[in-house]
Design a protein around this nucleic acid. Sequence first.
DNA 1: GGACACATGTAATACGTTACATGATTTT
DNA 2: AAAATCATGTAACGTATTACATGTGTCC
Lengths: 200, 200
Amino acid sequence: MRPPSELEGAVLGIIRQAGSCTAYAVRSHFLASPSPQWSGSAGAIYPLMERLERRGLIRSKAQTATRRNGRLYSLTPRGSRLLAEWLAPPLPDWVVGVPPDPLRTRVGFLGILPPAERQAFVAGALAGVEAHMRIVHSDLERRRADRSPWERLTARGALAMLKARRAWLRLAAREIGAAPAPAPSRPRKGASRQARDRRD
Amino acid sequence: MRPPSELEGAVLGIIRQAGSCTAYAVRSHFLASPSPQWSGSAGAIYPLMERLERRGLIRSKAQTATRRNGRLYSLTPRGSRLLAEWLAPPLPDWVVGVPPDPLRTRVGFLGILPPAERQAFVAGALAGVEAHMRIVHSDLERRRADRSPWERLTARGALAMLKARRAWLRLAAREIGAAPAPAPSRPRKGASRQARDRRD
DNA sequence: GGACACATGTAATACGTTACATGATTTT
DNA sequence: AAAATCATGTAACGTATTACATGTGTCC
């Protein structure tokens, strides 16, 4: 039984927590999330539900009463088992390891920019991170009541990451003062460059 | 000019920092990274290089001297410009926003598990995170010399994230003590199950 | 000169995104 | 009853993954 993808695992979890629900309810869950990770696009969810059903992880019942032609999905025993495996240790390396971070990626290339633009980058990043902190924070407050302790814990985790990132960006801002000059723009033959970093 | 994907942006940055390099050199860069994000699989890189060249972002010169049939890639002015845009503010929302984190995702569903397994989850996660902290830390030390200040900053950012995650997991461990019973497993009518979960 | 890592690819497959299409329900 | 929004899909497209295929240098 192949392990589920992140999205699939999350969908199984959502269905399980809801007891049973429609594809759209699953979508709404993602659409409501303040994390940009989950787009909840229709083209992702509906085919995914079909896939899960074909694999015997969920089953559906037509919504006879008063509704559209939507279906109510719920976990099968197989789906329940797979969900439990997905949640249980040992957690794969990429789950516990350094999470991807597009901001961090970009910082690695800051040497390319001239110093003034480095400053602008960090300032912009700080502003963006702080804006998102406010969003996540108010989302946490506003929906405190209708969330499980685990969902609140998740939100606090998200906040903690943003906070750590902010601290790190401030550190970066300090380091930029003492930074070396940017690398020259062209790689051509004019090889007599001094004190370049990291070609090859 | 469509903005590059993360992988494309990173590749442009790597080529730029190298001056010029082969596809394999780019791959090696990813393969050497301690972050699980970058697989650096051949099937990702080689087609990507072709794509970038077709779009006029990089150009290649056959490696005549002594080498295999590989090509040396370098940025075109267009590629250089796109790279600069990729790095410059305003940074899109999903770049500054909460980064995705598979561990955080799973924690949101911890309510599904019985308390004993929650403990196991958090313990396993903590162990994994700490193991990774050691990996990243020793990688940071070992290659301190041949890295730019920005790459070191990146590594420190990764470490900072792991540290924040560890603190958050410890908090989670404390909360588990005072946690509610798991939600019932089946939404069905045979509702008179008591406090069991995950038998299916 | 055989083994083994290095280096360069290709093919099949799976998944998510955007954009489009359409019917059902509610609002005005 | 027209407009808006809810809900359910579908199609085209791009891109990453795994697995395979193959040539090339090095070392023992």
